[in-house]
Amino acid sequence: MTPGPGHYLLLGAILFSTGLFGLLTRRSLLMVLLSIELMLNAANLTFITGAAMHGNMSGQIVAFFVMVTAAAEVTVGLAIAVLLFRRDQSVDTDLMRSLKG
């Protein structure tokens, strides 16, 4: 079966839900951030498939913006991870309860 746009979209969905699984279950903050990267890339694949499907370049531009935004998100997320590690000597998300009332 020759792969059409549907195959690419399904692949994007599989990658996205794999990332979602990691986001929900991993306990290390770094692995959670890594899973978010995976989800963003799955969304990028969907955007670029959309661009090819409709013959419209805007999808590729959006994918480019997602990349830039992800770079900014990672810098802040990693800075927070470094801070938390400095305070608790651990990046375990189950130990982060300081916001709990």
């Binding site: 951030l33 990267e37 890339n41 990028n44 670029i48 090819a52 590729q60 992800a70 770079a71 990672v74």
Partner: peptide
């Protein structure tokens, strides 16, 4: 999918910069 620029940016920005930062 006909997106060579995004493909290369993906390699340089993601595989090259973001993941090395990680």
């Amino acid at each position: 999918l006909g997106a060579p620029f995004v493909a290369m940016a993906n390699l340089i920005v993601y595989a090259g910069a973001v993941l090395v930062l990680f």
